[in-house]
Design a binder for these strands. Structure first.
Length: 468
RNA sequence: GGCGUCAUAGCCAAGUGGUAAGGCAAGGGUCUGCAAAACCCUCAUCCCCAGUCCGAAUCUGGGUGACGCCUCCA
């Protein structure tokens, strides 16, 4: 598989450290609020990465942290007159609700910054010993950026330009403006932990270095996150980890593009963001997931109501295909027929094409088109007229589900049975139809529709489904 | 200022040298008692200009426009 590596700015063949195993670290959310749809993108996209690698037979260890101590969490807690723990634990739960709604599988490990203070302190200590970090008199410990010769290699920024943007904030005691905090000395009223440099709390960047090392080792295969994390967060992670461990931190760096609103970056500071929860309540979760895989992960996506509605309509086509196929299979006969082998081979061709797309830096948009091509072929060659065997139906259904599952789509629970009232109405309508009492039949159909039950008359009988 | 991204039909979106995938929407048709679903048909020459090439949406140069990072942010 080829992966675009931010480090080298080109697509590279993915070669894992251990054959058939992938160690992946993804920067998770800071849990001080509901996640917005911008947050949903890396979550969905890198879930697809994981699913695809596993689909190809790799053993994937996927670590995604929760930043559960940070300025914004503390501020939020103060606003609500509560503590950071209450805030962070609440939004971790809300995150899980949204992640499940988006069909994102839980990571192998979801470590918390506050539960890895020891590892954080270990790394800081090593950095101080090696001269890459220094404690200041205010209790802060800073990373000595100028000592790291590789600094800037991920963001590809000339050091001089980084310097010009760097600032020393009020209260900081840095040797150089580019230095950044590994440890923040305790301030009154803030949560703190004991360290060799006095009470304090970890800086933002160090936690990822610590959790990556603890759960994945000193060198990992893939590190991923949003493009806006390239600098300073990921640049700083590299500096910390590599200066501490003396080996490359991550072989591949993957960064997803933004979700824009009206062609503007959606951000907390601009306040133009939609939470996943808000969108899901109106349109459901799955159109959001569809939106994320409908474009290549590195291109920007412009969110709008029109687009999310289109996503929903597109999903309907896929669901219809599967529903029709399942219905057909229930009414099919066992015994593979002449010529069905050729159909199998043709259907497998879509799978091949799907894989080729995914191999090319996770081209989900192109892969998705193969799924639609497969749907079209199934609709055309497996239907009431062609009366395929149960075996062929089953084969096609499995293939279809398999590919959809790599993208994490088509996960809505199916309504398995209608209640008695609905069954009765359907039977009554059948009688009316037999008597050619169309007015009555249509009346019942309308009544059911009002109850969100949509009927289809097929050669094998009445098919129904529940709609929103 | 430094670094970088993008510009393909009404909308979304693939395609990185060989003559424009896929989806949504729209129009016409088949099927249906009528529907629904499905199927068939119709629907772009790829922001502009110049260049390289037998051949360019794809490469080069120059424009125009939109956006991002350099500061908390997926």
């Amino acid at each position: 598989m080829k992966i675009y590596n931010t480090l080298t700015r080109q697509k590279e063949e993915f070669v894992p450290i251990v054959p058939d195993e992938a160690k992946i670290y993804a920067c998770g959310p800071t849990v001080y609020n509901f996640i917005h749809i911008g947050n949903a993108r890396p979550i969905c996209v890198f879930d697809v990465l994981r699913r695809y690698l596993e689909y190809r037979g790799m053993k994937v260890t996927f670590v995604q942290n929760f930043t559960d101590i940070d300025d914004k969490i503390i501020r939020r807690a103060n606003e609500e007159n509560t503590d950071y723990l209450t805030v962070s634990r609440r939004y971790i739960e809300e995150y899980k609700t949204d992640a499940e709604g988006l069909n994102v599988r839980p990571a192998t490990v979801h470590p918390l910054a506050t539960e890895n203070i020891d590892e954080i302190l270990n790394i800081i200590s090593t950095l101080v010993e090696k001269g890459y970090a220094y404690p200041a008199s205010n209790g802060d410990v800073y990373f000595r950026t100028l000592k790291d010769k590789g600094y800037g290699k991920l963001s590809h920024q000339p050091l001089d330009d980084l310097k010009s943007g760097a600032r020393i904030a009020v209260g900081e005691l840095k040797e150089d403006p580019m230095d950044f905090a590994l440890w923040k000395g305790s301030k009154p009223g803030e949560p703190s932990w004991i360290s060799p440099w006095g009470k304090g709390r970890p800086g933002w960047h160090i936690e990822c270095s610590a959790m990556a090392r603890r759960f994945l080792g000193i060198t990992i295969d893939i590190h991923c996150g949003g493009q806006d994390l390239i600098f300073p967060h990921h640049e700083n992670e590299i500096a910390q980890s590599e200066c501490c461990n003396g080996v490359p931190f991550a072989h591949y760096w993957m960064h997803n593009g933004y979700i824009n609103i009206d062609n503007k970056k959606m951000s907390k500071s601009l306040g133009n963001f939609f939470t996943v929860r808000d969108v899901a309540e109106k349109y459901g979760y799955e159109p959001i997931r569809y939106l994320m895989v409908s474009a290549h992960y590195r291109t920007p996506i412009n969110y709008s109501v029109e687009v999310i509605e289109q996503c929903r309509s597109s999903l309907e086509r896929l669901y219809n295909c599967r529903d029709n196929l399942e219905f057909l299979m229930q009414h099919s006969l066992a015994g593979e027929k002449e010529g069905e082998k050729a159909i199998r081979r043709r259907l497998e061709g879509y799978q091949d094409k799907f894989i080729v797309s995914m191999e090319d830096d996770l081209n989900t948009a192109d892969a998705l088109s193969s799924l639609f091509d497969l749907a079209k072929d199934i609709n055309t060659s497996l239907n009431a007229e062609t009366a395929p065997s149960k075996e062929l139906c089953s084969f096609a259904l499995n293939l279809f589900n398999e590919l959809a599952d790599v993208l994490g789509l088509l996960y809505a629970k199916k309504q398995d049975s209608a209640d008695e009232e609905i069954e009765r109405l359907i039977a009554e309508r059948a009688t009316a139809r037999k008597e050619k009492n169309w007015a009555e039949a249509d009346r019942i159909r309308d009544e059911l529709k009002a109850r969100h039950v949509v009927l289809e008359d097929t050669p094998q009988g009445v098919k129904w489904k529940i709609v929103e």
